[in-house]
Amino acid sequence: MTVTIYHNPACGTSRNALAMIRATGAEPVVVEYLKTPPTRAELLDLVRRMGVPLRDVLRRKGTPYDALGLGDPSLPDDALLDAVEAHPVLINRPMVATPKGVRLCRPSEAVLDLLDSPLPADFTKEDGERVPARRA
């Protein structure tokens, strides 16, 4: 199974999702999207596969979202995509894509629903929270 994670190594949720993927035995394709952002077409495909509006994958906290006026619901997707191209930090993370689907994995354990292999043992997140093992 090919697993791709759109990852920000500065984000604890993203680091936890990546660690959970690896704990199941999978080695994902890691796309550090701040260094290598997805193209407009790739981002639109991910959003389409998630079945959510583009706006739902935009991050507000710690980004220029408000300063750019992106909260205006009348803005078309092309304007949102222009903003994302100029500021990839607007992409929320981590997004994970597998043959089972695409999901914004917040909380990080949401990634487990996209994987073939279960989490083999209790997993402890960076903050000390335990995620129980999940069996297939």
Rank of each mutant, 00 (worst) to 15 (best):
T124R: 14
T2C: 00
R135E: 14
R106E: 06
V131Y: 02
S14F: 02
P73I: 08
T36K: 15
L104A: 06
E126P: 00
T63I: 08
S14W: 00
A86K: 13
T124G: 05
E42F: 08
V31I: 15
T2S: 14
L81F: 06
V96C: 00
I21V: 10
A26K: 03
P9E: 08
A23H: 10
H7V: 03
R130P: 00
L115S: 01
E126R: 07
A19V: 05
V3W: 06
T39V: 00
V47G: 03
D78P: 04
E32L: 01
A26L: 05
T98E: 12
D45H: 11
A10K: 14
V131M: 05
P88A: 12
D78L: 07
A83N: 04
L115W: 13
R60G: 13
T98M: 11
T98H: 08
C11V: 09
L114V: 04
A86V: 05
S117K: 15
D82S: 09
D66R: 10
K61T: 15
D72Y: 04
G12A: 14
V111C: 08
M50C: 04
T39Q: 10
R49F: 03
P88I: 04
N8F: 08
I91E: 03
L115F: 11
C105T: 02
M20W: 06
C105H: 01
R103H: 02
Y6Q: 05
I21C: 03
T13L: 02
S108C: 05
L34K: 09
D72K: 10
D45N: 14
D116G: 13
V84C: 12
S117L: 14
V30E: 13
A23N: 09
D122P: 15
V3I: 07
V84P: 03
G25Q: 05
R134I: 12
V131P: 03
D78Q: 11
G62H: 09
C11K: 01
M95K: 04
N8Q: 09
S74M: 03
L75E: 04
S108E: 07
P94L: 13
C105M: 02
L68A: 08
K35H: 14
L115N: 05
K61E: 15
T63K: 03
I21M: 00
R134M: 02
P120Y: 11
N92E: 15
L44K: 12
R60K: 15
M1Y: 07
L46F: 08
D82W: 07
G62C: 08
T98V: 01
L70A: 00
R48L: 07
P28G: 06
S74Y: 03
G101M: 12
R22H: 05
I91F: 11
I5D: 01
R134E: 11
P107F: 10
R15Q: 13
M95Y: 05
A86D: 03
Y6P: 01
V102G: 11
G12K: 10
E27I: 12
V30D: 10
L68C: 07
R130W: 12
L18P: 00
G51T: 09
L119A: 10
L81P: 10
R49P: 00
K35E: 15
G12L: 11
D77Y: 00
D82R: 08
V52N: 02
M20H: 06
V89H: 01
A86R: 15
Y65R: 07
F123V: 02
A97C: 11
L18M: 06
D113A: 15
R93P: 10
H7Q: 05
L81T: 00
A67L: 12
G69C: 04
L18D: 06
S108N: 06
P94Y: 12
V47C: 00
